[in-house]
Simulated scan of single mutants.
Amino acid sequence: MIDTSFHTFSEHLRQRLQKPLPGEAAHAKMASTARYRLGIKPNERTRRSAVLICFYPYQDSIYLPLILRPQYDGVHAGQMAFPGGRMERIDENLTRTALREAQEEVGIRVTDVKVLGLLTELFIPPSNFYVQPVVGVLPYRPDFYPDPREVEAVVEVELETLLDETIVGDSQIEVRGVLVDAPFYQIQGYRVWGATAMMISELLMVMNA
């Protein structure tokens, strides 16, 4: 039964997240050349943010949602991402930021989310953000209500897809008029790269440990 297997999966992931994380070693596997070429370091204007990586059972399998950002005048326009955003003054911590943003962006009922732990915080040079990935589970498939200002589409990704090594590729991607070499995950016709791919890389390394 999926309920039993999902509970087993959740408990294994919770326990693994309490142990030392692979961090930079996992991030480096999916980092683009632009990350190192830019040479941007955290500074006094660097802001904090968080995303929610939320697993749920559905049709005898396990899924998580990614979102497609709309086209806009910004560094992350049109990219695939986890629901999330910047920390606000009302947030007592970054876990609360991730939950609040997920609720605002895709309508996840955060009171039903069980937080399992955190992945390694990641600096994003183009937007000058530190982002904290928060990992949680829902006991059911949520009804998604995407905010059209923030989300063009919600893409439900099966865990088995992420575990398939054939979805990993590498190509040149244009970033603000400059071509950079970037590893990516090919998921349902979308190329997931950059910080989101780096988070997925660490997530997979944690799950496979």
Rank of each mutant, 00 (worst) to 15 (best):
R96K: 13
D60Y: 06
V115K: 08
N43G: 15
N93C: 13
V154Q: 02
L163H: 07
A209T: 11
I40D: 04
S49N: 07
T33Y: 03
V106S: 07
E104I: 14
I62Y: 01
A209G: 09
R176V: 10
E174T: 15
I67W: 00
D164F: 05
L17F: 01
V75H: 05
V151K: 05
V131Y: 00
G189L: 04
Y36G: 12
Y140P: 07
V110A: 10
C54Y: 00
L118Q: 11
L116S: 03
S10V: 04
L138P: 07
V178W: 00
P65E: 03
L162M: 10
H12S: 13
F55W: 00
D91R: 09
A25V: 13
L17I: 08
L203P: 02
G169Q: 08
R37N: 06
R176Y: 10
N208Y: 00
P142Q: 03
D60G: 14
R149K: 14
I90N: 06
N43Y: 02
E101Y: 03
G194N: 04
P70L: 07
L21A: 09
R86P: 07
I187C: 03
Q188F: 03
G74A: 05
L159F: 11
S61P: 05
V51K: 00
Y63N: 04
M198R: 14
F6H: 06
R47F: 06
F6N: 09
Q59S: 12
E104G: 09
R191G: 08
L138F: 06
G78C: 14
P142M: 02
I173Q: 12
F184V: 06
M80L: 15
A81Y: 02
G177F: 00
G189V: 05
R149D: 14
T33W: 05
I53F: 01
V131E: 04
M1R: 11
T97G: 03
I167V: 11
K19Y: 07
V155Y: 04
T111R: 14
A102L: 03
G84P: 08
Y140V: 10
I167P: 08
G78T: 12
F55H: 01
R109H: 07
L203N: 02
P142W: 00
V206G: 05
G85P: 05
T8V: 13
L116I: 10
M205G: 08
R149T: 13
Y63D: 01
E44T: 13
L66D: 00
M30Y: 09
L38V: 14
P70K: 03
M30A: 13
V157Y: 05
P126F: 02
P65F: 02
V113E: 00
V151I: 11
G194I: 05
G39A: 08
P183W: 01
V131S: 14
P148I: 05
M207D: 06
L162I: 13
Y56D: 07
A77V: 03
S5E: 12
